[in-house]
């Protein structure tokens, strides 16, 4: 589904991605983890071209996403992207946030878009908040709305950048529950997270990055086993201490 081939990226003189080679299979969930500054957020941001790459190739369903004839806006509308800070639009109500891609990209009428958006809100369990403003709902609810918004165009892939890191602990569960359900529904998902319990349970593959290098790419059982790479073991013990 998504293939990274020799992907490298620099911020000025600083190399943040080093020769990344990996594949995300259709319908699977890939969890990216690693210490902060390891390049995991940068890597997933290259998938919808929020960050350009300087070397290598990324293909989505066989298409080179950096090819000249690719319309970046069409590409992005085919990829759901969820941010750490939700980034809901504060001037729009919850349902209007979810409707916006239908209205402005699919050019649907409000009458067409509203029931679809309501259905999606139903799906994330927030139909009762449809007419609230983003300022009036909790962080966990905001993130579920953001996920609903990112799914409304039925994207090929859902990409999430630390979706629970900005949440109070008691709200992490509701978002992870939703992600578990989406994963079980068979959506292709890439998720940066420090939630190792979630990774163990849901991920089909786990990628571990360190200093811009993909040092470990394995199934969860291998990742959490004692003979995993020592970087991974160090990381895991650090994560456990912090939680």
């Amino acid at each position: 589904m998504i293939e990274f081939q020799n992907v490298s990226k620099w911020f000025g003189a600083l190399q943040v991605l080093r020769d990344v080679n990996a594949t995300v299979a259709k319908g699977t969930t890939t969890v990216l983890c690693g210490p902060s500054g390891s390049g995991k957020s940068t890597l997933i941001r290259t998938v919808n071209r929020l960050e350009p790459i300087q070397q290598g190739k990324i293909t989505l369903a066989g298409l080179d996403i950096y090819a000249k004839d690719i319309d970046v806006n069409v590409l992005r509308s085919g990829i759901g992207f969820v941010f750490q800070q939700f980034n809901l639009f504060p001037h729009l109500s919850v349902v209007e946030n979810v409707m916006l891609p239908l209205l402005r990209i699919r050019k649907q009428s409000r009458a067409q878009a509203r029931p679809v958006a309501m259905q999606m809100l139903e799906r994330v369990g927030l139909a009762d908040k449809a007419h609230s403003l983003p300022a009036d709902i909790s962080g966990g609810q905001s993130q579920r709305v953001a996920i609903a918004r990112s799914l409304i165009l039925k994207p090929e892939v859902l990409v999430l950048d630390e979706p629970t890191s900005a949440l109070d602990p008691e709200m992490v569960g509701e978002v992870l529950k939703l992600l578990r359900e989406l994963s079980a529904d068979g959506i292709t998902m890439m998720c940066v997270t420090h939630e190792m319990g979630f990774a163990r349970e849901v991920a089909d593959r786990i990628w571990f990055l360190r200093n811009g290098t993909l040092t470990f790419d394995a199934e969860p059982t291998a990742f959490f086993s004692d003979d995993a790479h020592h970087d991974v073991r160090n990381f895991l013990s650090a994560v456990r201490k912090n939680h």
Binding site: N48, N73, R76
Partner: peptide, 11 residues
């Protein structure tokens, strides 16, 4: 980030 979010929808 508002611009980034809007662009990542495909606007």
């Amino acid at each position: 980030a508002q611009m980034e979010a809007a662009r990542s929808i495909g606007l």
